[in-house]
């Protein structure tokens, strides 16, 4: 039995009221969306806010809509289940729909939100534990302590970015809309990340993520998501691979992007993916050879830490396999890729 530490619940009915609460209580307040990340973390006393501010009663934060000029707006409170099932998202951003559909299990996708998944806390076997457990080991670098149990003598936290939607949004060049005391701020999702597991996102505590915006894609857009995990539900990714391919009218690749997650504190872009795939027709042996070149590059870049479940060597060995398979799935207009 895991009891929550005491807090008060506030349910503002407008964005301004929510921002006022965040301004009033500062670091003592935490925002709750679906609760699937915050509530277990509160039960583990990783975060102990005095005030929990729910966004559930602010209707404009929910739903998928047209943002003009072919852009799609996804409210931050849209559930992952709704993102995965939305016809416009599936057509315009298949990798995102697939990634959202592979997060955890059905109940958690019903509860969990897109905004919550983007802003998911990093994960580590030495961090996501009860207070009792962590205290027994003298705590860790990310919370309450000074010692890293993963990297001997490590001075920087290596807890892993574990959000499935983040790499997909990065390949799609999504933009995030934050609202804070200074007004609206629009930032490319690439600029959100810091390479520090203790706090891997540039987001102030008095700001709210209100919207994710997706740029238009053409008929030649292909995307897929691959997820390595030990069972078909609930698990966080042991490895996540998002791919994007743009084809011209003759089926030749004009642009490509591959982003990996669950390897280190932030999602990682595979270098030279576009260069290696450019000008190749997205079928047959030439494509397979190019996809393998990208897979080899991903393998060179990937150094998974032994701080999330699953043997680190196995996770590293699966990086090129999942990159190749997910590129092939994207080329075929298929996906997602997951073995279980």
């Amino acid at each position: 039995m895991l009891r929550l530490p005491k807090f008060e619940v506030r349910t503002p009915e407008s964005l301004d009221a929510a921002l006022a609460l965040l301004a009033e209580f500062g670091p003592d307040a935490r925002v709750i969306a679906g609760g699937t990340d915050l509530v277990p973390n509160m039960k583990h006393e990783l975060v102990t806010p005095r005030i929990v501010v729910s966004l559930a009663r602010i209707p404009e934060l929910r739903g998928v809509g047209d943002a003009g000029a072919g852009w799609l707006r996804l409210g931050a409170m849209t559930s992952l289940a709704d993102v995965a099932a939305d016809a416009r998202v599936r057509a315009q951003a298949p990798a995102l729909a697939q990634a959202a559909g592979l997060v955890a299990g059905p109940q958690l996708r019903t509860m969990g939100t897109l905004g919550g998944n983007v802003l998911l806390d990093t994960r580590c076997q030495w961090y996501n534990q009860t207070y009792f457990w962590r205290e027994a080991l003298g705590f860790c670098l990310k919370k309450d302590g000074t010692l890293c149990h993963v990297v001997e003598g490590g001075s920087k936290c290596v807890a892993a970015a574990s959000n499935d939607t983040a790499p997909a949004l990065m390949t799609l060049r999504a933009e995030l809309v934050f609202v804070g005391p200074q007004g609206r701020r629009v930032t490319p999702i690439d600029d959100l990340w810091l390479a520090d597991g203790a706090a891997n996102k540039k987001c102030a505590s008095d700001e709210l993520l209100v919207e994710v915006r997706l740029p238009p894609t053409g008929p030649g857009h292909r995307g897929a998501y691959g997820k390595l995990r030990e069972r078909a539900s609930i698990d966080f990714p042991l490895l996540g691979v998002a791919t994007r391919i743009e084809l011209d009218a003759r089926g030749t690749i004009t642009d490509a992007d591959v982003v990996l997650t669950a390897l280190q504190a932030r999602p990682v872009r595979v270098k030279r993916a576009a260069e290696l795939l450019l000008g190749v027709r997205a079928e047959g042996d030439a494509f397979l050879a190019a996809a393998r070149a990208v897979a080899d590059q991903a393998h060179r870049q990937a150094h998974p830490m032994p701080n999330i479940p699953g043997d680190a060597e196995w996770r590293r060995a699966m990086v090129p396999v999942y990159v190749r398979r997910t590129l092939e799935a994207a080329a075929r207009g298929a996906g997602p890729v997951h073995a279980v």
């Binding site: 030990e230 699953g310 043997d311 060597e313 196995w314 060995a317 073995a339």
Partner: peptide, 8 residues
Amino acid sequence: FTPAKVLK
């Protein structure tokens, strides 16, 4: 019998 053990 995990995939990791089989691979190893």
